[in-house]
Simulated assay, not measured.
Amino acid sequence: MSAARLPVFVDVDTGVDDAMALAYLFGSPDAEVIGIASTAGNVDVHQVCENNLGLLQLCGRSGVPVSKGAEAPLSAPLRTAEDTHGPQGLGYARLPAPTAELTAYDAAQAWVRAARAHPGELIAVATGPLTNLALAVRAEPALPRLVRRLVIMGGAFDYRGNTTPVAEWNVSVDPEAAAEVFAAFSDADELPIVLGLNLTENIMLTPELLGALADTAGSPSRPLSEHDDRGAASAAANPLIRVLEDAMRFYFEFHHDCGEGYLAHLHDPLAVAVALDPELVRCRPAPVDVELTGTLTRGMTIADWSGRWGRKPNALIGVDVDPTAFFDRFIARVGAFARQLPYS
C-alpha cells in the first residue's frame, strides 16, 4: 500500500446513502478500502452482503473482502427500513449479480483482523448499527487502542430523532451495542468522531447537485424531479451514475413524502469524508451515553456537555459542517471515479 493511501475499514448496512459513501471511498485517491463489514440495519444482513458485493462488482473493485455480520442486534429483534431504502436497500437500483464470495470469517473477526494488521494506522467507519463493532470489542478489548481513527454515523445531539422523537436509526436498532462501543472507546488514544443527525441533516443532496455529479462523470442526464413518474428509470449512460440516480430517486421520494422536500440527507458519505479528513467538521468533546431503559427515550444519545456525570469525554461530537465544501469534494471524487468505469 502506498504511504499516501490510508487503510480504511468500513462497517455498513447498505442502504442508499451507504452506497454513496462506498462510491466516495472508491473515488478517493487517499483511501485504500481493506475490508467491508456487512451489518443488519436498513435491510437484513444477507441483502446487505449482496449489495456490497454487487457494488464492488459494478465498480470493478475486486479483492476487497466482504464479511457477513450478525443477523440481529445484541438483545433486541431486528428492525429494518425498506420504507426508506427500498425492498433491496438500494431504492429502484439494480446491481449486477456478484461473482465474488464472502469471507470465511464473520464481520466481528474482520474488524479484529483489520485492526491487528494495521495497528495505529487503521481508519475505521461505522455507518450502520454498531452490533459488529461491539462484538469485535468483546473479542479484542484492545481494539479501541489499535484503531487510529473511528468515525461513527449515529445519534442525535440536542436534536430530534428520525426513528422515535429522540432516537436516531442506527443507535435505535441496537442501543446496547452503541452503549458498549461508547464505553469501550473511553480508553482510546483518539476519541471517536460521532456525527449525529444534528450535523448530517445539513448535508442535503438535491436534484441539481445530483445532476452536477452526472455532468462531472461525463454522463449528463435530465435532472430528477418530483413531477416525474414514481420509479422512473435513469437514462444515464454511465453505469454508476445510473445506479446512484435510481437509488436516489427512491430516497428523494421518501423524503418528499415525509414533508422534507424533494431532497435527501447524505448521512453516511459525510462520515467517510470526515474519516479521511476530520477538518471537514468542527467537533466538541463530551461524555456520551445511550438510554437503554426509558419507555419513551430508549436509544436516545445523551451528551453531558456540562460535566454533571463527572466522566471524561469519550467522543468528539460533530457540531458544525460546511455543506458546500463537502459537496464540492463529493462531486469531484465520485464523478471522476465514475468517468473511469466502462459503460455497459
Rank of each mutant, 00 (worst) to 15 (best):
F9G: 01
V12G: 00
D13V: 02
G15R: 05
G27I: 04
G27D: 08
G41Q: 09
V43I: 12
C49I: 02
L55W: 04
R61N: 10
R61Q: 15
S62T: 07
P65L: 03
S67E: 06
L74Q: 05
L74Y: 02
L74C: 05
R79C: 05
R79V: 12
R79M: 11
T80L: 10
D83A: 15
A104C: 13
D106E: 14
D106F: 09
A107L: 09
A108Q: 04
Q109G: 08
V112T: 14
R113Y: 11
A115W: 04
A115G: 13
V125T: 08
P129S: 12
P129C: 10
T131I: 09
A134Y: 00
R138V: 10
E140F: 06
A142H: 03
L143V: 12
Y159S: 03
G161H: 09
G161C: 13
G161Y: 07
G161S: 12
N162A: 04
T163Q: 14
W169M: 07
D174M: 07
F182L: 14
A184W: 00
F185N: 00
D187H: 15
D189M: 14
P192M: 12
P192Y: 07
L199G: 02
T200F: 09
P207R: 05
G211D: 13
L213Q: 08
T216L: 03
P220Q: 13
P220F: 12
D228L: 01
A232E: 13
V243M: 11
A247M: 08
F252N: 02
G259E: 09
L266P: 06
V272D: 03
V274T: 05
A275P: 02
L276K: 06
E279T: 15
C283P: 10
P285L: 07
V290R: 01
E291A: 12
G294P: 05
G294C: 13
G294F: 07
T297N: 12
R298M: 07
V319L: 14
D322M: 11
D322G: 10
F327C: 11
D328G: 08
R329A: 02
I331Y: 01
F337T: 04
